[in-house]
Write a protein that binds this DNA or RNA. Structure first.
Length: 427
RNA sequence: GGAGAGGUGGCCGAGUGGUCGAAGGCGCAGCACUGGAAAUGCUGUAACGGGGUAACUCGUUCGAGGGUUCGAAUCCCUCCCUCUCCGCCA
């Protein structure tokens, strides 16, 4: 959520930054109008409240001082109090309604792109930052797509998963299931060693949590919702993990907070019909190890860089070629001010595909979720900066391994760092 | 799901109709003492919103939302959550 005060004080600047996401997509004027009305009413209402409070105190004092509670003096004050109450009874609901309208509009506004986020209309204008591991590009010219080799090896079952659930689900068998577990453990072990504290949050999460991180109210169609409860299947661990601290005031000395979490993630993938219909790239359920940081605002850019490095380290250890791109203003997510995507080489597609997204949301999520910190001796509180990144998407990592490590005999070599986990050198 | 008890400031905890934004403690900050520190003493210390350059000032907030009253942390209603006991269950 954007700071209403900043919108009010710099409407042109805010509008200009929002326009970088797409001209004409967001209009601040309705918010400014409602805000002005709201403040007029607030000024008026608080004056009446002040008098009303004064009367209340006065009556108490007079009665204690020996005035007749049924006498004329007290009755006159009560009368005035009642008149004020009638007026307040009209103003209060108006003010409340205006505040709710402003809140609703603010919740629908995306984050402001960071100044340094490259300006662009869509993904075509993202900027490549660097590539890594071209020496590991596979030389085998006859690589089968991962879903074919997976089914051949009997470790991926798509049609049986469809029978149990529906399209875009997979069943992992034998070494497939073991590889998934190995990847999860390997990723967690590495990130724990890098300083992240592992958490296993609830996978069913409430509406307030999804609102706190920005998935709601705008993107309700992206998540699975339980019919009889106010609970949704988590689309990413970012949501439960960031919301662990919702409405908390953290001591500054406790920052930064680093968490890693393995969770299954559930996404409806509405609107992506026809894209990546085969394989592990786009499923309704997938595993992911997520990194979350809550940090002091002064450190957030440094922390963003190191978060990216932590995600990259996994691919380097697995010796999978990848590139890092910086998303342009037209492609960054709703809550993000700046995002780096890591894309891994997928030989069958002859291209790099997203395997991690590392975003700095600045105070956008913290303001929505009420995550603040207090510095000793300083008055008031500040919002933390919340950052998140995948470290990494497990299914896509498996896809990359099944292809990049595919041997000419149709078997798949196990990456060296995974061998201790899998207790196997080849699948 | 049934019965009972509870939810108060960064934390703990007192407070059953007015002088309560709320005692006391912890924590934190400043000062004194000290070579320095600890201990001790004194002082200060809620958040959010409006107005004001500022000093400051007005309002809101005691789980959430309604209600009673001139006046609610305190009384009433609904909901959420926590704890104890019972039931069910991996």
């Amino acid at each position: 959520m954007l700071d209403l005060k900043i919108i009010r004080e710099n409407p042109d600047k805010v509008q200009q930054l929002l326009d970088r996401r797409g001209v004409g997509k967001y209009d601040l004027q309705p918010i400014l109008d409602l805000d002005q009305k709201q403040r007029e009413i607030e000024t008026n209402r608080s004056q009446l409240s002040a008098r009303s409070n004064e009367i209340g105190k006065l009556i108490g004092q007079k009665i204690r001082g020996g005035s007749d509670p049924k006498g004329e003096e007290i009755s006159a004050l009560k009368e005035e109090g009642n008149e004020l109450k009638t007026k307040l009874g009209e103003l209060e609901p108006q003010e409340k309604e205006l505040k709710a309208q402003i809140e609703n509009l603010l919740l629908e506004l995306p984050n402001l792109p960071q100044e340094s986020t490259p300006i662009g209309k869509n993904e075509e204008e993202n900027v490549e930052i660097h590539r890594w591991g071209e020496e590991y590009l596979p030389s085998n010219p006859n690589i089968l797509p991962h879903w074919e080799i997976g089914e051949k090896l009997g470790i991926l079952e798509f049609s049986r998963a469809v029978k149990v659930a529906q399209a875009r689900f997979v069943n992992l068998v034998g070494a497939g299931a073991a590889l998934e577990r190995a990847l999860i453990n390997f990723m967690l072990d590495r990130q724990i060693a890098a300083g992240y504290v592992e958490v296993m949050p609830p996978l069913l999460i409430n509406t307030e949590s999804l609102t706190g991180t920005g998935q709601l109210p705008k993107f309700a169609e992206e998540s699975f919702k339980c019919q009889d409860d106010d609970l949704w299947l988590t689309p990413t661990a970012e949501v439960p993990v960031v919301n662990l601290y919702r409405n908390e005031v953290i001591e500054a000395a406790k920052l930064p907070i680093y968490h890693c979490a393995y969770t299954p993630c559930f996404r409806r993938e509405a609107g992506s019909y026809g894209k990546d219909t085969r394989g592990l790239i786009r499923l309704h359920q997938f595993s992911k190890v997520e990194l979350v940081k809550l940090v002091h605002p002064d450190r957030s850019e440094t922390e963003h860089q190191s978060l990216l490095k932590n995600a990259e380290a996994i691919l380097q250890a697995l010796q999978l070629p990848y590139r890092v791109i910086e998303l342009c203003t037209g492609d960054i997510g709703f809550s993000a001010a700046k995002t780096y995507d890591i894309e891994v080489w997928i030989p069958s597609a002859n291209t790099y595909r997203e395997i991690s997204s590392c975003s700095n949301t600045f105070d956008f999520q913290a303001r929505r979720a009420g995550i603040r910190f207090k510095e000793a001796g300083k008055k008031g509180t500040q919002f933390v900066h919340a950052l998140n990144g995948s470290g990494l998407a497990v299914g896509r990592t498996m896809a990359a391994i099944l292809e990049n490590y595919q041997q000419t005999d149709g078997r798949v070599k196990v990456p060296e760092v995974l061998q201790p986990y899998l207790k196997k050198e080849i699948i």
